[in-house]
Amino acid sequence: MTNIRSRTDKSVRIFFFSVALASIAILFMIMIFLFMEGIPIFKKISIYDFIFGKFWYPTSSPPDFGILPLIIASIAVTLVSAAISIPLGVMTAIYLAELAHRRIAELIKPVVELLAALPSVVIGFFGMVIVAPFLQETFGIPTGLNLFNAALMLSFMSVPTICSISEDAIYSVPVALKEGSLALGATHWETLIRVIIPASISGISTAVILGMSRAIGETMVVLMVAGGAAMIPESLFDPVRPMPASIAAEMAEAPFRGDHYYALFATGIVLFMFTMLFNVIADHVTHKYRQTGEASL
């Protein structure tokens, strides 16, 4: 009897182990593929010239493969979108977890999460058809397809991520901490600012970083609304071409295993490095500043 049970136990464990292993294997295979297809470009151009080159003319002869404008565009779009989505997301989370009536919270929460369910192409279309003409007319700028529009659309996409992870973090702050603070005579506001937010800061940071990593990798939205000019932006309303947009626009028709093709994969490697960096930081923050008990505050 015990024999059968332990055997079942073992086989179930092996089954789950192999399932877990499969996703790791897939990740590694994709990584190997990415590097195999991207590295050959560095026979033609040095890594330095690739990353810091200011001109991206992959099909002219002789071609220029400098992705600095694309990298700067990605970073700029992500930072501007973070500046919009962090206050929005975190404040919504605080409101939902601490201030809102249960009834209202139950109404708002699904709506915010629904924002995450909107397909990115729909958000992109909204940005292109509604927001771009609006920006053009309101600010009198030459084109509404620009850095700001893209950042705004991206922040719509990262708000749900930031909000729901932050809310979980705030929600899981031990009640005793809050009650202790209130018992000492602190107001609700003081408790919120001095106790609850510091206690959940690691969770909130993770939320912010994951939200930004979502923004930097997003493709459809930036392809549709960022404008696509491969130049280093000088103002908030300049058109830009982030890395994913460049890859998506050009990959379909780049000659298979040509220099342009390799250069696009190499751009993919750079992008992958960025998202990996974000994830490593998020992981580090979660572990290092984890709220392990009520005493560690």
Binding site: F55, G228, A248
Partner: peptide, 12 residues
């Protein structure tokens, strides 16, 4: 065969 300047917007 001259290059389009970088400020040009791109659509796919």
């Amino acid at each position: 065969k001259e290059r389009v300047f970088p400020r040009a917007l791109l659509q796919a």
